[in-house]
Every structure is written in structure tokens, then in C-alpha cells.
């Protein structure tokens, strides 16, 4: 595996030089491998949104560097737009950015800005719509006639259509109903599997992160608090709780059972996994067959 994104001593300050100065990201260094799915968690205001906005050059770091494939993205400030096609960013509540007459045109906006035309563009749009589960007949509708969940998926498709090497999603499931969440999440997993691209997922839902992420990045008070494999991170339940986060509920239950002296692993991430662990334990003890 090769390193796709590398951050070196990255810092950002809001309102520098005014009385309202606030350090939003403080000396963060880390590297992300090609093809990883990274979950990013942190308390509100911990700097995670600012951090991800620096990765595609929407805001310029006050100090430090962002290296994409080993090259500083700010090497040629005039060409920063090219970086944005390579590092796709889906903002929180992206449905509010839709503006075109039809869903099709809206999805095509980013890809056309990138320079795609004709068949290439058409293919990019249809593939993106397919990844996000938008039915082809929706493409000719006005984006303002879609339901909330469909709008969200159309907006995400607009970024996917640019075919970015790294896809960043800021709270993609916020405000969706349980079905919509589930659907969107499985589409993201699918996209990641099929494309093999690097995906960064910012979320407040520990359950979602536990389910999909290879590694988890924890931000706390503008600093990098932890970056480790998902299982390792959620094994530190106490520390996470101290900074206002928690572990998935099922992980917590399993940890509580373990504290009772039952022989269980210290980090169980999903309900299915918990079920398997428990039933094999019970079988071993001869309580069920």
C-alpha cells in the first residue's frame, strides 16, 4: 500500500489577528494509505470539519503541509482547483447546494468543471447515480422535487461523478431516517469496495463508524487524539468518554460483561459480531448446543 495523503504539522487559526482568534486545528500530523476507509470522530467544535476542508484546499493551512501523492497541494496555488477534483468533498447537508434544472445536470456540474464532455460525462453521471442508488428516471426531474434522502444522494453523486481519488464525506447520514441511513451507508461501503478508493467519513454515529471504518481518527480540542485501527480505538472506551464521545452501544455492553469477569474480547464492534462471540462462548461452556 502506498501513502495517498500525508499531513505534516498542520495548523489552522480562525480570525487570526483579531480578538476572536481561535485555533481550530493544532499541529496535526498523520498519513493515510491508498484504499483505506477512515472514520473521523470528535466532539462538536473539535476541529474535524476544519481539518477535512484543508485536505482539498478549500482553506489554506496557517502552518504545515498537506501532501497528496507526495506533493504539497499548495505548491501551485493557481492550480488548487485540480486538487479539488482529486480530493472530493461532500459537505454536511449537501442537498442545499443543488441548483440545476435537472438532477442530471446537477450531478454533471462538477464533472463538467473538471473538463469531461460528451459520452465520458454521460457515463460519469450515470455511474455516479448508480452508485448512490438514484433511479434513472429521477435524473430528468428537478432536484427540488426530490425527497430529502434523494436530494442527499443526488448531491453525493455530484461529487462522486468527478471520480476523486479520495472521497471525504462530512456527516453524510445526518438527519436521515433509519432506512435512509442504512441505505446510504451500504452504498458508501459498496462504492469503496468497487472503486478501491480512499474514503474519509466524518460522523457522530459510533455505530456507523464501527461498522465501516478500517481506522478511526479521533480529534479533541483541535488536536489529534488518536489514530488507530477501529478495534483498538473502541477498546479505549473510558478515554473516549472523557472527551465527550462514546463507543458503540454493543461494544459497551460487551465491555461491561467483560468487566464482570466473563471471558470476552475487549472490543466487539457490531451486533452480529457480538452474537457470534457470545454464542461460541456459550457453546464452549456447554450452555447451548
Amino acid at each position: 500500500m502506498s501513502t495517498v495523503l500525508e499531513l505534516k504539522n498542520l495548523s489552522f487559526v480562525y480570525g487570526a489577528g483579531t480578538p476572536f482568534e481561535k485555533k481550530a486545528v493544532d499541529d496535526v500530523s498523520l498519513s493515510i494509505e491508498q484504499g483505506e476507509l477512515i472514520g473521523i470522530i470528535g466532539h462538536t467544535g473539535s476541529g474535524k470539519s476544519t481539518l477535512v476542508q484543508m485536505l482539498n484546499g478549500l482553506i489554506k493551512p496557517a502552518q504545515g503541509q498537506v501532501l497528496l501523492d507526495g506533493r504539497d497541494i499548495w505548491e501551485q496555488p493557481k492550480k488548487i482547483r485540480d486538487i479539488r477534483f482529486r480530493v472530493g468533498m461532500v459537505f454536511q447537508y449537501p442537498e442545499y447546494q443543488l441548483f440545476e434544472e435537472t438532477v442530471y445536470k446537477d450531478i454533471a456540474f462538477g464533472a463538467a468543471n473538471k473538463g469531461l464532455t460528451g459520452d465520458e460525462l454521460d457515463q460519469a453521471v450515470r455511474r455516479a447515480a448508480d452508485f448512490t442508488g438514484l433511479r434513472p428516471e429521477l435524473l430528468e426531474k428537478s432536484p427540488f422535487d426530490l425527497s430529502g434522502g434523494e436530494k442527499r444522494r443526488a448531491a453525493i453523486a455530484g461529487v462522486i461523478a468527478m471520480d476523486p481519488e479520495v472521497l471525504i464525506l462530512d456527516e453524510p447520514t445526518a438527519g436521515l431516517d433509519p432506512m435512509g441511513r442504512e441505505l446510504l451507508l451500504s452504498q458508501i461501503i459498496n462504492y469503496h469496495k468497487e472503486k478501491g478508493n480512499t474514503v474519509l467519513l466524518v460522523s457522530h454515529s459510533m455505530e456507523d463508524i464501527a461498522r465501516v471504518a478500517d481506522r478511526v481518527l479521533v480529534m479533541n480540542r483541535s488536536r489529534l487524539f488518536m489514530l488507530d485501527r477501529t478495534r483498538e480505538v473502541f477498546a479505549h472506551g473510558d478515554e473516549l468518554e472523557k472527551i465527550g464521545l462514546r463507543v458503540p452501544q454493543v461494544t459497551k455492553i460487551m465491555q461491561a460483561l467483560r468487566a464482570q469477569g466473563i471471558d470476552l474480547p475487549d472490543s466487539v464492534l457490531t451486533v452480529d459480531e457480538a452474537f457470534d462471540t457470545l454464542s461460541s462462548l456459550l457453546k464452549r461452556e456447554g450452555k447451548i448446543w
Binding site: Q53, N56, L58, R81, R84, F85, G88, M89, V90, F91, P94, Y96, Q97, F109, G110, N113, K114, G158, V159, M162
Partner: peptide, 10 residues
Amino acid sequence: KIMQAQKARG
């Protein structure tokens, strides 16, 4: 916010 989002789409 909208400007940032559209810039992100190039």
C-alpha cells in the same frame, strides 16, 4: 457555506 460546497465541485 454554499460557496465552499460549489468550490469543492470545481
